[in-house]
Every structure is written in structure tokens, then in C-alpha cells.
Design a protein around this nucleic acid. Structure first.
Lengths: 111, 111
DNA sequence: GCAAGTACTTACCTGAAAGTAGGGTGCTTA
DNA sequence: TAAGCACCCTACTTTCAGGTAAGTACTTGC
């Protein structure tokens, strides 16, 4: 079944607007296990820059996919978790991982 | 379950390398119904530029996700279809559509 | 006193993705 | 005579995702 691709509310485009970056997919994957702190995510995704980590988290929170809980302590503690809406994206992440695994088996990683 | 994100063969990154652009997702969706001609795809995705259409199709063929069949006729006829490997990506596309539909229902499209 | 950890912000810069614009072929229809 | 379809290719340009680097505020530990 096809959807009206050119339509302003095309579901594919709508979805990609929300989670269409590699960092968002990785972040949602890591948040799927539960609440994670800022520094934890940074360690889990070593090659993301601080700027991108902050930006992407801010966007996820802005879209209502993730929730941010800040504790006014010293040193500061900030925790991120998926909202119900964010958990709706988990099937996407799961299928991406499944597809990636199939293709890892298929052939060696090419440049 | 988490996978080694920094790992060179991280399945998420591998998958996004193959189908991580909006055009590829849209093209795979439209090829899911069967064989499609070049001009047909162009009409189905009105706002893709010719350059992008050619480029993305070429990459899909290069990755082994799609097959190209050219008929040396006048006027020329070129048909594209998904390979078995390309069909492995269909669950990703399906879950993206499902997620997009859920979020269309949630709220109006924001700028 | 100085580094190190925690959670950011700001400014600047680069490189790749994508859009724009035009060319080319070889036939058909008006 | 030119207009149009179908299937591309090439060069130029813009836009944006993303990286680099530095600063903030406060505290603990050597």
C-alpha cells in the first residue's frame, strides 16, 4: 500500500523528521533500557560530540520523545528517559538493528 | 540488549549506511509494490530532483538492494526492482510508516 | 592551588548532502 | 520545425549536519 508521498503529512517524512538522524536512532536505542544520565550516554556513544549529544537530546525532548529530569545538586545530575511516544519508535530501531545484523552476516564491511 | 556502538560493525550504523537517507526509504517503499520504471518513480516522488533520483537508485543498485533492468528500446525503458537483500529492508520501512502514522494522529504537523 | 568530574553553552568552521541548471540522445507526434 | 518523452550526465552552488575548541559554575581530592 502506498501513501501520498508528496502529501505534507506523508508518514514517512513525518517519521524521518522526528527520528531521521543516526544519533537519534542510537540515542533511542540506548534509552530503551531505561533512564540514562548525560555522562552515561556520552560514554556509551564515544564518538558523538558534546554539541551533538546536547542538541539531539534537546530535540528529542522537544518532540516529546524523551523526558529530561534535572536534579539541582552539586555536581549536577540530569537523567533522560523515553516517553510513551518515544517508545513508539522502538520498533523502528529494532528493525534497523535486525536489518543491520542481516547485512553484517552477508558480507564484510566495505569502505 | 545493547550492541557495541563504537564498534566498526555496529548494526545500526551499518543499516544507516545502506538506507539512511530519506530518499532511499521512499524509493524502497515505492519499489515494495514490484517493478517500477524510472519515470514512474519520478512521478511518484515529485519533489526529488533527477540527480538525486539517479544517484540514489545507483547507490541502491551498488549496495545490492535493488536491481536495474534496461531494455535497449526506443524510447528507452529502464525498470528497477528490489532484490532479496532489498526486501530485507521492508520491515524497517513498514515500522517507519507505522511510527509516522501514530504521530500524525497525535498532533498536527509542526513547522 | 590545581586538576578532574558534571552538565552544559557559545562561536567558528568544514565537508558532505542536496538543490539548480543545463546538456545530450534518439525517436515520435503536431 | 519544433516540441516532447524517456533516461540519463555534468558542473555549480547552497544548505546543513556535524566537528573543534573554548568557557561556565561548583565541588571533591591530591
Amino acid at each position: 500500500m502506498q501513501y501520498p508521498i508528496g502529501h505534507p503529512q506523508c508518514p514517512v517524512r513525518r517519521a524521518l523528521n522526528l527520528i531521521g538522524s543516526r544519533w537519534k536512532v542510537l540515542l533511542i536505542q540506548h534509552l530503551s533500557g531505561g533512564t540514562r544520565r548525560y555522562g552515561e550516554l556520552k560514554r556509551l556513544i564515544p564518538d558523538i560530540s558534546e554539541k551533538m549529544l546536547i542538541n539531539e537530546l534537546k530535540e528529542l525532548v522537544g518532540y516529546g520523545l524523551a523526558a529530561k529530569q534535572a536534579y539541582p545538586e552539586i555536581p549536577p545530575r540530569v537523567e533522560y528517559s523515553l516517553t510513551d511516544k518515544g517508545r513508539q519508535a522502538l520498533p523502528v530501531v529494532a528493525s534497523i538493528i535486525a536489518f543491520g545484523l542481516q547485512n553484517l552476516a552477508d558480507e564484510p564491511v566495505a569502505a
